[in-house]
Design a protein around this nucleic acid. Sequence first.
DNA 1: GTATAAACGAGACGGTACGTCAGGTCTTTCT
DNA 2: AGAAAGACCTGACGTACCGTCTCGTTTATAC
Lengths: 205, 205, 205, 205
Amino acid sequence: MKRSLQHNAAVSVGEKPRPGRPRSAECHDAILTAALELVEEVGFAALTIEGIAARAGCGKTTIYRRWPNKASVVMDAFLASTAPEISFRDTGSTRENFRRQLRAVVKVLAGPPGRIIATVIGGGQLDPELGEAYRTRWQAGRRVESRQTLQQGISRGELRKDTNVDLVLDALYGPLYYRLLVKHAPLTPSYADALVDLVFPGLEV
Amino acid sequence: MKRSLQHNAAVSVGEKPRPGRPRSAECHDAILTAALELVEEVGFAALTIEGIAARAGCGKTTIYRRWPNKASVVMDAFLASTAPEISFRDTGSTRENFRRQLRAVVKVLAGPPGRIIATVIGGGQLDPELGEAYRTRWQAGRRVESRQTLQQGISRGELRKDTNVDLVLDALYGPLYYRLLVKHAPLTPSYADALVDLVFPGLEV
Amino acid sequence: MKRSLQHNAAVSVGEKPRPGRPRSAECHDAILTAALELVEEVGFAALTIEGIAARAGCGKTTIYRRWPNKASVVMDAFLASTAPEISFRDTGSTRENFRRQLRAVVKVLAGPPGRIIATVIGGGQLDPELGEAYRTRWQAGRRVESRQTLQQGISRGELRKDTNVDLVLDALYGPLYYRLLVKHAPLTPSYADALVDLVFPGLEV
Amino acid sequence: MKRSLQHNAAVSVGEKPRPGRPRSAECHDAILTAALELVEEVGFAALTIEGIAARAGCGKTTIYRRWPNKASVVMDAFLASTAPEISFRDTGSTRENFRRQLRAVVKVLAGPPGRIIATVIGGGQLDPELGEAYRTRWQAGRRVESRQTLQQGISRGELRKDTNVDLVLDALYGPLYYRLLVKHAPLTPSYADALVDLVFPGLEV
DNA sequence: GTATAAACGAGACGGTACGTCAGGTCTTTCT
DNA sequence: AGAAAGACCTGACGTACCGTCTCGTTTATAC
């Protein structure tokens, strides 16, 4: 059951061929694609293993053999689809770097991937495993880059040495996810700008 | 179906008595209590209407007659239990007012009500009605008071006249909900303090 | 509960007026009419008290106050509608008397009342009370007349003195009901004729 | 849905093995046995699919997968239990052949199988499919043998050449079913004898 | 007249069973 | 030996009626 955090089914390179019929890669992809489509169409709660199997044209058993629960399937499907994305580019100014990246994040969150992320975070409130999977397999990776960019700003002397990094990251990204999840107001690029301009003055030396 | 935003079963004051046997208030309370207990014990996903009915000692029909889905039951249960709570008191300093209120909010979110709020927001990603119910019946009310306090600070000359109120509220509360929902770090009173001290310097004249 | 064999709700003549609002005759009729219509439309099994109440425009309680179960309602409804019907007329010949009456019976059984009788007998296999009601309140009455006609034939010297009356009545009517209920062949006037001509030769002196 | 007239679940001989887990024969038998027991204990009306499933130790779905309604289950249960039964033996005299067979039929109808037959015919008044199933899967088979025996009597010169076969069969069996269903008098062997002696005089040359 | 008494409609109540759906497991044949 | 199919038991779903029970409202007789 603890294998749920890894691509447990991928036919890794250099894998020694085990006896028996090898697992079908077409099948694997079909399942992930079906899962992704369905989670967008009906949401995580209404998503069923049977539905995924039916759309993927495979048996339920084939899914259960590879993933322990539907959360893992969805998480794998999400990662397989959204892996290549929003990263930082150095403009020379840390504030400007964040402004650009936050605008990119807003763009993603306001689109279809945003709905999936919201679905996954929402499902994570009900299914602890999904929450854990989201944190470690998606959130943590993004956070590393943001932290590095912030730390770079500190070491370059742009930002105060006593900057509470985790707090600042929360102050920047928290409001975005807040609007994504509560939907009390829209997510716009100018909202990203305003946020950066609210938080950074207190950080810059 | 559009009645889900109101206490649809309560025998409101001054209500002209409709024909037929009136709905039982004991029953109403028993259901909400049972729902609240169960959602804490087993979580929203494992919560069943049958389970609520069994614990409340009433028939399933009685629940279905009053609420369209389990999300609404939980929402009503939550409101009935957590209504009288976190409010502002004027200490003379707007920053101090917010520091105290955010600490109170953290206390609530870190406790059992926090789990239910997270559950409701999570469920709101799948069930639009629940999301809407959360926004209008809970979130909006809290927001009004916060906005007034902030505006008071502006009119008292403590805060800049060009303060973007909605943005500031998001910057203060967003990070709290971010941690509540993503759970990448704990919610502590000192986090509330740090947040206030990060955001306010840029606002004060 | 044992009152189900009598018209328990009719405002009988000479009834001493009890205090309180008297039972409504319109209501009574509306219920019986609704029951009759519904039993023809959907059958006895799918018939519901709620359905009758809804169509009759009265409350369920009003029905339960008067009849102990749906079988009684249907039986009353049937009797109220089909009371005036098939009787014997003396032609001088007993065989002819029966031929005419059996033709009349076939006519009734082949029409809508036949469907209701079939429904009632069918329901009687599942609901003993309905069966008992059918026997005593309908069947027995018809039987008396047939028996008298047969006995008249005996005393007039047309039929053998050792005629087994009950057997002959069964031999005459049994096949009609057999076809009514099993439906393996149609009920036609000529079938009645043939039946009479099969049974009577052995009876006549 | 048109499969209800056949043993739709039986693993027929010579059936090419389809993929997937085959239907369990133990399960099949357990359901039919449970259905038969229950219909005798509580009657058809109080019979529930849930009750059958509980006693058979299987899930409701397993029953619904094989039969469309409880009538079909009972019909199959009845056929499986009463298949090997009442048949004719040639004594040399057609009248005697029928006397013996009618006595056997009376014996069956007066016992537990009789209650089930009555239940099935009764149910057939409400559910056309059940009526059709009864006619084709039970009644028709019995009728063939009776017709052959009657025709044998004709060709042997015992009975008149112009005998109306269908009418005679109705005259012999109709009264039995009449008493079975209306229950106005008991079914006894001597009743069978008397019936034969009433009908045959008119047939014999 | 004004109690008092009962029937009325409406509809909520605790239940039972419905027929469906999906869960996760299993058993079988096919590749 | 894995894939695909499909049957298995389980358990919850949301619905329909059951028969009972309040309600507030008539509509009678009795005081």
